[in-house]
Design a protein around this nucleic acid. Structure first.
Length: 276
DNA sequence: ATTGGTTCCTGCTGGC
DNA sequence: TGCCAGCAGGAACCAA
């Protein structure tokens, strides 16, 4: 379930192997991802150098010389399987939908069993106006995100705060797990009405979002080597989850407060004793 | 305008 | 041991 920290970890791995290198060949094994692959994609990228691998929310941005940008979303199960130059590639997988062969010999396979992922092509000039990106809220690790900004985005919202945090227009990059984790650290119930998260509560929540994402990126970064070995391992942060999937609350060190509820069709874990 | 529900897809898990 | 129903989830889409 790639959320912002996982996508950032993937971005860093890709940057290591793609930036400054030319795409020699792009193989399309399966064009029907969540949206159809852009027409003529191989012709657009073959022979071009990747200038930079960027990220916006959960989107990876492959910026090519000449101003073309390939937008990549990993969806639920998407992975970028990197084989460094000179290494033995893992056996091919039926879900290797797109394969980048880089000059020098590295390969990058976009593997996505569930095909919730997508790719689209745009230009650096059009990027901010692109359908997928234009409505996104602030980057949670950027300067524009803080307590007052969060409170303003939540104002007037009747939905539970958990649902609001999953809305990428409020803040971009949280998914089901980190939304639950941030609410735990902020001591806010996932069921609380979003509009009541103001003032100090909004400050605490914004800070908790920032911290949990930062720590998760650090944990993902520590396993970059594994990731590059194409194991698909995205990091070790799952061992640090405070509430998600847990039966005991690490704050109270007890089980009685822990709840699992379903909100907008998704599991939410929280501690009813510590989160109000 | 906002919000809740449904859908896409396939691998994994738990119950029998 | 094997089968299968049910669950997992990001985000577009639809209906209210």
């Amino acid at each position: 379930m790639p959320e912002l920290p996982e996508v950032e970890t993937v971005r860093r791995g890709l940057a290591l192997h793609m930036e400054g290198r030319r795409v020699e060949r792009l193989a399309l094994n399966r064009p029907d991802l969540r949206i159809p692959l852009p027409p003529g994609l191989p012709e657009k990228v073959e022979g071009r150098t990747v200038e930079r691998i960027g990220r916006r929310a959960k989107y990876i941005l492959m910026e090519f010389e000449g101003g073309g940008v390939l937008i990549v979303h990993l969806g639920m199960s998407g992975r970028m399987v990197v084989t460094p130059q000179g290494s033995e590639p893992p056996p091919p997988d039926p879900h290797d939908h797109v394969v980048f062969a880089m000059a020098g010999g590295a390969t990058i396979r976009f593997n996505d069993a569930r095909r919730f992922g997508l790719m689209d092509w745009t230009s650096a000039a059009e990027l901010g106006r692109h359908k997928l990106l234009r409505e996104l809220g602030p980057e949670p690790l950027g300067n524009a995100f803080n307590g007052p900004a969060l409170a303003a985005a939540l104002a007037g919202r009747a939905s539970p705060i958990k649902a609001a945090l999953l809305d990428q227009r409020v803040v971009a990059g949280l998914g089901n797990i980190y939304a639950a984790e941030a609410l735990f650290w902020a001591g806010i119930s996932p069921r609380r009405r979003a509009a009541t998260v103001t003032g100090g509560r909004a400050e605490r929540l914004a800070a908790a979002i920032r911290e949990v994402l930062t720590r998760a990126i650090e944990a993902g970064g520590s396993s970059l080597r594994d990731y590059v070995q194409a194991s698909g391992e995205l990091g070790y942060f799952q061992h640090q989850w405070a509430v998600y999937g847990r039966e005991r609350c690490p704050g109270c060190d007890c089980a009685e407060g822990v709840r699992r509820i379903v909100q907008s069709g998704r599991s939410t874990f929280y501690c009813a004793k510590r989160q109000r």
